[in-house]
Design a protein around this nucleic acid. Structure first.
Lengths: 187, 187
DNA sequence: ACACGATCAGAATGATCGTTCTACCTTCAG
DNA sequence: CTGAAGGTAGAACGATCATTCTGATCGTGT
């Protein structure tokens, strides 16, 4: 059971797409293995249960967002511009990539138990995201960086959900203007 | 098949609680009927399928919120105070009643097809809510009432989701201060 | 008294769920 | 040469899924 392998990678990547687009409890193991071109035996060689695959999916999404954020931070030389870069990045991501809502919120909706590994992974992601935004707000030198960071977390949630349910055309501009005003940036 | 009956009411009320607390695809018909003290035959007498019960659940939640809002509006004599009453009402609801997130967002997470009756019901609710908030913003005489109304929709989403995933202690004050500033009210 | 409509009781449908199993094939290191 | 490791193929497990069925029981209005 190697940590990585072509079959495992293919399975996880396929599962990530299907879970995000169609939900988690709604798709069965049969669907996942046939779509990924993998055998059931191979599935259970790499993941002890379906829940472990779900947790791996959430952690994959978390890793992708951390990478995206690191890339964005690297391209903002002036720390006072960092918040603006983050806001633009979220807007872009919401419009073109995450059009089916927030993968973490959607996953949490299907797992009521806060102690479930999936929920633990969601909480880890949110803790990182809040800490990162508070750090960016501090670097930008705004008043009450903790409050601004928290509010930006809420606003990203709202942007992802609103874009899914009301369409990006109405949700994204609203997110953008509210977030920029909060960050002390001119619109 | 009467529009209402003790058995039907009991079934719908029970289903609403269980769907909200545990999700929709995760709970089966067996669970619903035993918990409600109703027979499978009675279930299918009143609802052609489980999906119809889910739609009824979403519509029930919508009706409850419209009633809550109407009550709140009635107790605000001065229209300039209406937005503040709404914000307080949302904060109270999020803290004490809707502690498992937004029923509409959670339901939408489990139904990817935008044409599905459940999604149609969700959209109807959100359209009503936005129109109502824009109306309240107009009555309060704020600048750009459409923008303020939209933003308040986003903020309620964020408050419900944030309260579920991060806890009300951190999400509610953040919602409150952001919303009040947006509505042009002193904090 | 009677019939009807609502509900109860419980078995049965076929499909799909997550999981386990046996059996065979390939690759590569000892 | 051998044998472990990673994979494929496909059957099989019991459990649960949503849905349908037969048949009896109760209450109410006529």
């Amino acid at each position: 059971m190697p940590r990585t392998s072509p079959a495992r990678d293919r399975l996880l990547a396929t599962a990530a797409q299907i879970f995000y687009r169609e939900g988690i409890h709604a798709v069965g193991v049969d669907r996942l293995v046939t779509e990924a071109g993998v055998t059931r035996a191979t599935f259970y060689k790499h993941f002890p249960s379906k829940d472990d695959l779900v947790r791996a999916y959430v952690e994959l999404e978390d890793a992708a967002l951390r990478r995206l954020f690191a890339d964005g931070a690297a391209q903002a030389d002036d720390p006072s511009e960092l918040l603006g870069v983050v806001i633009d990045g979220v807007a872009l991501d919401v419009e073109h990539h995450h059009t089916r809502g927030c993968p973490f919120i959607n996953a949490a909706a299907e797992f009521p138990d806060p102690e479930h590994p999936v929920r633990v992974a969601v909480r880890a992601h949110r803790d990182w995201f809040e800490a990162t935004l508070v750090g960016a707000a501090e670097a930008a030198g705004v008043d009450d960086p903790a409050g601004v960071g928290r509010s930006l977390v809420l606003l990203r949630d709202a942007a992802l959900v609103g874009s899914y349910l009301d369409g990006p055309a109405v949700a994204v501009p609203s997110f953008r203007s509210t977030a920029r005003r909060l960050a002390g940036l001119g619109s």
